[in-house]
C-alpha cells in the first residue's frame, strides 16, 4: 500500500513540476527571443525565477505577477467554494434520485438535454429570470461582491442575490458532473455481484447499501474530484465574466487579451495546482472510504 501512495505522490509532484514548466514556457514564449539558445537561456532563467515563486512583472500594471494573481484569487475561491456547495447540494440528490430505479437509470442520460446549454447561456438565462420574472433589481450590475462585502452590506438580500446567481451558475455546472459521477458509481454498485452474494449470506438490503454500496459511491465521487474541479473552474471563468465579478478568471481573460503572459501564467499555474491537489486529496480520502488496490 505504501508503495502505491509513494507512486501517487510522485505522480502529483511530477504533475506539479509539469505545471511549473508549462507556466514557465508560457511566460517565456510571450517574450521575443532570437534563436533556440537565447530562448533556452531565457527559459532557464525564468524557470529558476518561477521556482522561487517569481513569475515576473505584469506587463500592464508593472506589479508582481504572482501578487496580482493571488490578490484576485480570494474572490474566485469564494465562488468556487460556493459552487462546490451548490454542486453537492444539487448533484447528490439528483444523482441518487436518478439511480433509484431501473427506469430512472435508463432515462437519466436525457439529463444531457438540459446539460446541452453552455454555461454562459445558462448564466444569461438566470439573470433574465431573476430580473424579469423575480423582479430582482439588475443583479448583473452588482459587481465585485465578496463574502466580506456581503457581511458588511446593510442590504442583505441584495448582496445575497448578487452572490447567489454566480454561485448557482457555477454550482449547476458542477452538479451536472456530480450527478453523473454518482449515477455511474451507483450503476456499478447496484449490479455488483456482492450485493446478491451478501444477501444470500444473510445480510439485509439496508445493511448492504449503507455499509458497502454507499461508501463505494462516495469513493467513486471522490475519485472523480479532478473532473468536477475542471468543470467548476471552467464555469467560474464564465460566471465571473458574465456577472462582472473581479476574480482571477477575469484577470486571466484580460491578461490573455492584452498579452500579459506573466500574470496569465501565474493564474493558470494556480488553477492547475488547485485541480491537482484537490484530485490527490480526494483520492486519498476515497481510499479510506473504500480501499481499492487498483486506485
Amino acid at each position: 500500500m505504501w508503495r502505491l501512495w509513494l507512486l501517487r505522490a510522485a505522480q502529483l509532484i511530477g504533475s506539479l513540476v509539469g505545471a511549473v514548466v508549462l507556466a514557465t514556457l508560457l511566460a517565456t514564449a510571450s517574450h521575443p527571443s532570437h534563436g533556440v539558445s537565447s530562448f533556452l537561456s531565457a527559459f532557464l532563467a525564468k524557470l529558476l525565477a518561477v521556482l522561487s515563486g517569481d513569475f515576473g512583472q505584469s506587463a500592464t500594471t508593472g506589479a508582481s505577477a504572482m501578487t496580482a494573481a493571488l490578490t484576485a484569487f480570494p474572490a474566485t475561491l469564494q465562488l468556487l467554494l460556493a459552487g462546490v456547495i451548490v454542486a453537492l447540494l444539487l448533484g447528490i440528490p439528483l444523482g441518487v434520485f436518478l439511480s433509484a430505479s431501473r427506469t430512472l437509470r435508463a432515462a437519466a442520460p436525457l439529463m444531457q438535454i438540459i446539460a446541452a446549454t453552455p454555461v454562459f447561456v445558462a448564466a444569461l438565462a438566470l439573470i433574465w429570470i431573476a430580473v424579469r420574472v423575480l423582479d430582482w433589481n439588475e443583479t448583473s450590475q452588482a459587481s465585485a461582491l465578496s463574502w466580506a462585502g456581503l457581511m458588511r452590506s446593510a442590504d442583505w438580500s441584495t448582496a445575497l442575490r448578487a452572490f447567489a446567481l454566480p454561485a448557482l451558475t457555477v454550482g449547476a455546472a458542477g452538479a451536472a458532473s456530480v450527478q453523473l459521477s454518482i449515477r455511474r458509481a451507483a450503476v456499478r454498485a447496484w449490479s455488483a455481484p456482492y450485493r446478491n452474494g451478501l444477501r444470500m449470506m444473510g445480510l439485509g438490503t439496508f445493511d448492504i447499501d449503507l455499509r458497502y454500496a454507499v461508501p463505494d459511491v462516495v469513493a467513486a465521487l471522490l475519485r472523480d474530484a479532478g473532473e468536477i474541479a475542471l468543470a467548476l473552474i471552467s464555469a467560474a471563468a464564465v460566471a465571473e465574466w458574465v456577472f462582472h465579478r473581479d476574480g482571477a478568471a477575469v484577470l486571466f481573460l484580460k491578461s490573455a487579451a492584452f498579452g500579459d503572459w506573466n500574470v496569465a501564467a501565474a493564474i493558470l499555474f494556480v488553477f492547475a495546482v488547485i485541480k491537482l491537489v484537490a484530485q490527490f486529496v480526494c483520492l486519498a480520502v476515497s481510499w479510506f472510504v473504500a480501499p481499492d488496490e487498483g486506485v
Binding site: S15, L22, G226, L230, I233, F252
Partner: peptide
C-alpha cells in the same frame, strides 16, 4: 505531459 495539460480546463 498531456496529463499536465489535462489539469487545465479546455476553455482556458
Amino acid at each position: 505531459i498531456v496529463g499536465v495539460l489535462g489539469a487545465l480546463p479546455v476553455l482556458l
